[in-house]
């Protein structure tokens, strides 16, 4: 069962203690497939992805990736122990560097990267961090072909880049880490329609080159072209799983999530 699944999330609970943000998330990805997450702001999508990549500890449930269990098996420590210093007394249940080195690469929402490093320096760190899974020079070429702007801006510091350019570098850094699965959290957030189109076609190319994706976005039309399965995220739960064949239109989604009255 786990052999054919690239990612298998079972009954994941999590949040920021003491506030639970999402509960009982089941999400699976067969090899080579991509999924989209869709849902209103503030319903826990980003928190879920941060848990998936090990930045915050899951409360309950298991995460299997590429046949390996990413979280430490077993239940979380008792409440009594969690009240003491978490880092000294409780063992972390997930390790972000182990997640990234396994090939699950997360490009976070509104990634600010490293403001005082140049684009070239930033791109050079990823292969080092991922322990040289890929041929760095070759991947760098791919990134430049996808985003010619990144090539033009190589010697500029990140803090002088525009939001769109920064997003391109962030995705480029994700690619440099040789992802087996790439998580993109609202890659087109706050971009102009022109830039959004540019970025969308680049992401489409990444998808076609065989990198599976988990994409969060508010634009169903954009998601539809990329993914095989859509998960609707609602109040910290997955309320519906929709296969590509019966992908709904934007209006239908709005009805599903908010009832008849909204448009």
């Amino acid at each position: 069962m786990t052999d054919t699944l690239l990612l298998d999330v079972r009954g994941l609970d999590g949040g920021y203690e003491p506030l639970q943000i999402f509960r009982k998330i089941d999400l699976s990805l067969v090899q080579g497939a991509s999924v989209g997450l869709f849902g209103p702001n503030g319903h826990g999508k980003t928190t879920f992805l941060r848990t998936l990549s090990g930045i915050i500890d899951p409360w309950d449930g298991d995460i299997f990736f590429d046949g390996v269990q990413l979280n430490r098996p077993g239940a979380r420590g008792s409440r009594r122990w969690r009240n003491f210093n978490y880092d000294a007394i409780t063992r972390r249940r997930m390790d972000p560097k182990a997640v990234a080195r396994a090939g699950l690469i997360h490009v976070p929402q509104g990634n600010l990267l490293f403001p005082d490093m140049t684009v070239a320096e930033t791109l050079s760190i990823a292969p080092y961090a991922s322990r040289g899974r890929a041929n760095a020079a070759e991947t760098l070429d791919t990134v430049f072909r996808l985003f010619p702007r990144v090539h033009e801006r190589l010697d500029h510091k990140i803090r002088f880049l525009s939001g769109g350019e920064r997003q391109m570098v962030a995705i480029g850094v994700g690619l440099m880490a040789a992802p087996k699965l790439l998580i993109l959290d609202e890659p087109t957030l706050g971009l102009s329609p022109k830039l959004r189109g540019e970025l969308a076609s680049a992401i489409q190319t990444i998808r076609e080159s065989g990198v599976p994706l988990i994409v969060v976005d508010q634009d169903i039309a954009f998601l539809e072209e990329l993914i095989d399965t859509l998960y609707l995220f609602d109040h910290g739960r997955i309320s519906r799983r929709i296969e590509k064949v019966d992908m709904p239109t934007h209006e239908e989604i709005m009805k599903l999530m908010f009832g008849e009255d909204h448009h």
Partner: peptide, 24 residues
């Protein structure tokens, strides 16, 4: 040096560095 660059990266944005697989 890659190690030195990684050090600067962690200094500037710890979480982004972590997501890239750097052992903070």
């Amino acid at each position: 040096a890659p190690l030195g660059r990684a050090m600067r990266a962690v200094a500037q944005n710890r979480e982004a560095a972590q997501l890239m697989g750097i052992d903070v």
